[in-house]
Design a protein around this nucleic acid. Structure first.
Lengths: 202, 202
DNA sequence: TCTTGATTTGACCATCTGGTCAAACTCAGG
DNA sequence: CCTGAGTTTGACCAGATGGTCAAATCAAGA
């Protein structure tokens, strides 16, 4: 195991390669379905070498998830209480949709974890995520009180945004099986924009 | 392996117990994450005994999926071109939501399979499912042409219904981590009803 | 160049897992 | 109560998998 001094050039490079390879493998096969050998070979390392940088498969997975949670929640974090309500929400939705498009592996990593009961990130959900959502729900509720947007159940509003946008990353195969060659996001963007505009217009 | 005569009383009972146990285990852990021993013990059988009824783990999974696909698509199948457009669509949504509530294991079984690229049901998606969706899209499009419902991208309309309703089953842990004790479906039902009423009112 | 810590690896291990098999047990019909 | 088909199981196997370790190799500063 590398000492915990300042990481060397090689340590930085290899840790990064491992995490990227792990993201590929975990997002495609889930935690149980991923093998250390697979991650190692995708990272261009031997298995013992990989385990020189991370003590276990579990440790890689944990490092990945906790490193990406921040990225994952950033779009919601950026929802600004001082902006125009409708535009803020629509912009949030566009950011989420763009993440599904550009970071589908990250989306599926979380989807895999959640659909199996989130055994490894349950704490983060009911602490960090809940706190963030609660704080934004306060803002949404105020906007509704002020008549800036229509009154709807604010928690379900957020759930619906997650569901709609992440669907395109998580269930990509299904969407593509039905749409054929058409780019899913081409139609998705105007669709969700219209949907939330109609829902939230007072 | 049981002969393929008429199944005996014991065969019927054990096959059913195995499929129910397999649904529990596969939906909670995915194909790779499930073990034959786990399914066997949940079904109250020894592993060799279980493999007397199904030739392999794969066979159990296939039997489950193909047996449930029909159930899973039934709500969309029931969308009636002769009914009132708005009521038909809202009823379809309620049926889907009810399935998430009453058959969450089934939902997660498919979610697990899809999120990992649907390696075992890809054919069913691009054949049966696509054909069904295409046929219903024709009906939706006609309703839009007739001005009975607002014009939106019909495929994305269907995707959005799947996303919104299945979210409550597939990502149940996340929803509950945020809502606490509140029953998710209590708020979800009026929320989605309002959402699609606003979206589809011409 | 030499030294020392960082890095890499081949060989190995224990456990888990899907699956097999022959022997034993159960049970309904004659 | 026999008998033969249907059912169940303990013991076992081969391959996969997570992880270890001592020895070998490399790299950078003195």
């Amino acid at each position: 195991m590398p000492k915990d001094r300042a990481p060397t050039r090689i340590q930085k490079k290899n840790r990064a390669m491992i995490l990227d390879a792990a993201l590929n493998v975990f997002s495609a096969h889930g935690f149980r379905g991923a093998t250390v050998d697979q991650i190692a070979s995708e990272a261009g390392l031997s298995k013992p070498n990989l385990l020189y940088y991370f003590p276990s498969k579990e440790a890689i997975h944990t490092a990945l998830l906790s490193g990406l949670l921040e990225v994952w929640l950033a779009p919601l974090h950026a929802l600004d209480e001082n902006g125009d309500p409708m535009e803020e929400i629509l912009a949030y939705i566009q950011r989420k949709l763009q993440m599904s498009r550009e970071l589908p592996r990250e989306s599926r990593l979380f989807a895999n974890e959640l659909v199996q009961g989130a055994p490894r990130i349950h704490a983060a959900l009911s602490e960090d995520l809940k706190a963030l959502v609660d704080s934004k729900v306060i803002i949404l509720t105020r906007w509704m009180d002020q008549g800036k947007i229509a009154r709807v159940h604010p928690y379900h509003l957020i759930f619906s945004i997650w569901a709609l946008t992440q669907h395109y990353a998580d269930f990509d195969v299904q969407v593509r099986a039905i749409l054929g060659d058409e780019d899913p996001f081409e139609g998705a963007e105007p669709f969700v924009d219209l949907l939330y505009r109609k829902l939230l217009t007072p």
